[in-house]
Computed example of a mutant assay.
Amino acid sequence: MPEKPGAKGQAAKPHHHGHRERLRERFVQTAGTGMPDYEILELLLFGTIPRRDVKPIAKELLRIFGGIGPLLSAEPEQLHRAGCTEATIAMLKATREAGLRLLKGEVMQRNAISSWQALLDYCHAAMQHNPTEQFRILFLDRKNVVIADEEQQRGTVDHTPVYPREVVRRALELQASAVILVHNHPSGDPTPSKADIDMTRQVRDAAKTVGITLHDHVIVGRHGHVSFKGQGLF
């Protein structure tokens, strides 16, 4: 259907005309403070969906995935099924990666013990919305400075195979003096299972034989975490 002409024969402006400029201006003025998630998502979608009202799209994506965190962490196939184009998928994944690199910068080459909250913030952002289990290791030098952060395994929705010998081998390769284990529970509940506890003790014992300290094992859930050291589990 052709657009209705305006007063001077021009096409009538859509109802959302000027919305993008106003939203950008408000974001710049407030740095996003007080803006709902759907407006932040609108700003991101402006770059990949031109000349359309993206507010309903943003709200629908947040409804489908349950929030901006799960949306940014979703697999490309899930985003595609939700109607996202390749350009939008790339933008969303790049946005997540940029945020993770910002948080990781507060962890790497810093003392893990004195920067513990920054480390937890990074681990939560990196893992809490993952649909499958992920096991990663932070390697520390003798001053407890983080020298490497590596993903060791990805598993199923409720299991990730972990081999103590591989953990120790990699620590020796990096000349690490200590390690921190981190993995997520896609169920959202960070409560350790018996298998988690047994594996942690096996890693602790294997590392101890070569002079490497296991500082902690942290399980990340959707709304919290459990520290094995804090719970006295090893």
Rank of each mutant, 00 (worst) to 15 (best):
P2Q: 12
E3L: 14
P5G: 07
G6F: 01
G9L: 06
H15G: 02
E21K: 11
E21N: 10
E25I: 10
E25D: 15
A31N: 08
G34A: 07
M35R: 02
Y38Q: 03
Y38H: 12
E42D: 04
L45S: 03
T48P: 09
R51F: 04
R52I: 06
K55T: 13
P56R: 01
P56M: 03
I57R: 13
K59R: 12
K59P: 01
L61E: 05
L61P: 02
R63V: 10
F65A: 08
I68E: 02
A74T: 10
L79I: 09
H80T: 14
H80I: 14
A82P: 02
G83H: 07
C84Y: 12
T88C: 09
T88S: 10
I89F: 12
K93E: 11
G99P: 11
G99W: 10
R101G: 14
G105L: 06
E106D: 14
V107N: 13
N111A: 10
S115R: 13
S115W: 14
A118T: 02
L120N: 08
H124R: 05
A126T: 13
P131S: 14
R136F: 06
L138H: 12
L138T: 07
V145R: 10
E150I: 14
Q153D: 02
G155N: 01
T156D: 07
T156E: 07
T160G: 09
V167D: 05
A171C: 15
L172M: 08
L174R: 11
A178Q: 11
V179C: 07
V182R: 00
H183W: 03
H183G: 01
H185E: 05
D189K: 05
P190T: 04
P192S: 09
S193Q: 03
D196Y: 05
T200W: 00
V203R: 00
A207K: 00
D216Q: 02
D216P: 03
I219Q: 00
I219T: 01
I219M: 04
H225A: 08
V226S: 03
F228E: 00
K229D: 09
G232V: 05
